[in-house]
């Protein structure tokens, strides 16, 4: 599926592009292993019963098919998985994981693929915005002035007893985010988008 045809007419080349799955070229067995390691679940044991998609709140309103991702995980179809925008439509409700008769955790297969995609810089910006909020304030959803006023009205302090009130805890948080390269990733990808 990877080889493009060298036809003069690019539109034709695209329309007639190779749609045959050839394990030797299209499969990366280390992908299955990596997904299983990060996700902590034996994705290769999936027998494609469809219980996952049948349980999925995203399936009825999109082209996202968790079963298809499980199949691709099995076949080592790394590039297809990591570049598919549907990867980010899982709400991580884990209903599929509760019902999977093979006792797998399809949701964590998705999480593993997202981790791998993110490492390659393929990650929606809203995810990285959360990283920056936390880096700056300790909170994914930070406090604001209107809320401070409201808190006082309720008899609470304007700042909750978190990093909001104790910013001295922020350096440790920033160090952790940097140690894992998460902050760097956010900066790099977000700046590329500018």
């Amino acid at each position: 599926m990877t080889s493009a045809k060298a036809y003069k007419d690019a539109a034709l080349a695209a329309r007639l592009s190779d749609r045959v799955y050839r394990p030797a070229e299209d499969s990366d067995p280390s992908f299955t292993a990596e997904v299983e390691k990060i996700g902590g679940t034996a994705a290769h044991l999936c027998f494609q019963c469809g219980t996952c998609t049948g349980s999925c709140p995203s399936a009825p309103r999109s082209s996202y098919r968790i079963r298809t991702f499980m199949r691709r995980a099995n076949l080592g179809m790394k590039d297809v998985c990591l570049n598919d925008p549907d990867l980010w439509l899982c709400t991580t409700c884990y209903t599929c994981s509760d019902r999977c008769p093979r006792d797998l955790i399809p949701t964590d297969v998705i999480m593993a693929m997202r981790n791998m995609a993110a490492k390659q810089g393929i990650v929606p910006k809203n995810f990285l915005a959360t990283v920056n909020f936390i880096y700056n304030t300790g909170h994914g959803v930070p406090n604001n002035d209107a809320n401070r006023v409201a808190r006082v009205k309720l008899g609470l302090e304007p700042e909750p007893e978190t990093t909001c009130k104790y910013p001295e805890f922020l350096p440790a948080i920033r160090k952790i985010l940097e140690a894992y390269g998460t902050k760097q990733l956010a900066d790099k990808v977000l700046s590329e988008g500018q």
Partner: peptide
């Protein structure tokens, strides 16, 4: 009792999707 200096948990979906390891550490 107040848990002073706590942060975002951090958000399991948004944050865990990027790197589960940093999610664990945070």
């Amino acid at each position: 009792v107040p848990l002073k200096g706590a942060s975002c948990c951090p958000a399991p979906g948004a944050f865990g999707s990027i790197d589960l390891n940093v999610w664990y550490a945070m």
